[in-house]
């Protein structure tokens, strides 16, 4: 108990006197021109789709995305939302993946072929009802994203003691958001400033608090071959995965911004109406 209290007291003192941290303050990320950054901005779904591919092929080896289920990828406003629409040339019904330009009938994420295909690539464990054994089966859209490690200890053991953070809300949990993710992923390769001591097993990155990050540079050229043929440059991959993580952290952002216009418009009209009502009622009264 004594020790616990001392720890708490030490933490408290740290919060009072944190000047030592000044030395380790990170470089501020440069703001990028994101399509979603503006008040009414929307996601560039092609970029979010590519970003998912980067997550799946690169990040997911160490980072979980525990707040998301595979079905979320096929939600309205998600990168793999599917719509059934008629092809105007052939007249045949076909399924289109991605944001719907010409409407069509939305397909439930559980029946979404793209989402089912993505989920089926991963195994999840479940308890067999007849034997009670833990068995593996391919994931379904309703399953949560599979985590790369069974627990934090396993994650640390596999990563030299560092814990790769869950990425569900990473853009909201860091100052700078998507700018920070982009800057961090493309910020390797600089020599540390003179006088800064090297930390063995870590990599210098001026955008990371403290300067030394356990994650090695990941987005090397051609690391991912994009299905849409986009160039697989580190810049492109970082931009796309930052877009994907922004969407993953706040999937309702588009709906929220759209609804905001209607709500603010309504409130503005109501405010004006009340103002004129106020003027009318107080017309004869001195105040």
């Amino acid at each position: 108990m004594r020790r616990g209290m001392l720890l708490i007291l030490a933490a408290f003192c740290c919060s009072l006197a944190a000047p030592a941290l000044a030395a380790s303050e990170a470089r501020h990320p440069h703001p990028q021109a994101w399509s979603f950054a503006k008040p009414l901005g929307t996601f560039d779904q092609a970029s979010v789709q590519r970003g998912y591919q980067v997550y799946e092929e690169v990040c997911s080896a160490c980072h979980s995305l525990s707040a998301l289920s595979y079905r979320n990828l096929g939600d309205k406003g998600g990168p793999f939302a599917a719509y059934r629409a008629k092809n105007h040339e052939t007249g045949a019904e076909e399924v289109r993946i991605g944001p719907s330009a010409h409407g069509g009938k939305f397909i439930s994420p559980n029946d979404n072929p793209a989402v089912k295909a993505i989920a089926a690539k991963f195994d999840v464990s479940e308890i067999d009802g007849t034997t009670g054994d833990i068995v593996q089966r391919p994931a379904r859209p309703a399953d949560r994203f599979a985590s790369p490690f069974v627990n934090e200890a396993a994650a640390r053991a596999a990563n030299g003691g560092a814990y790769p953070p869950d990425l569900s809300v990473i853009t909201r949990a860091r100052h700078g958001g998507a700018d920070y993710i982009y800057a961090l992923l493309t910020g390797y390769g600089e020599a540390p400033p003179p006088g800064v001591e090297e930390v063995p097993g870590k990599h210098y990155n001026p955008y990371f608090r403290g300067g030394w990050v356990a994650m090695a540079p990941q987005l090397t050229p051609d690391r991912v071959s994009f299905t849409d043929g986009s160039p697989s440059t580190p810049d492109q991959m970082a931009r796309d995965v930052a877009s994907f993580l922004e969407w993953a952290g706040d999937p309702k952002a588009e709906l929220r911004k759209k609804m905001g216009v209607a709500v603010l418009g309504y409130l503005l009209a109501l405010t004006l109406l009340l103002f004129f009502a106020y003027r009318q009622i107080w017309r004869g009264e001195k105040h």
């Binding site: 008040p39 609804m259 905001g260 709500v263 603010l264 503005l268 009340l274």
Partner: peptide, 13 residues
């Protein structure tokens, strides 16, 4: 109503 306008601006944006 003016107050709720400010409130809503934060909630939605």
């Amino acid at each position: 109503a003016v107050f709720v306008l400010l409130f809503a601006a934060f909630v939605f944006y």
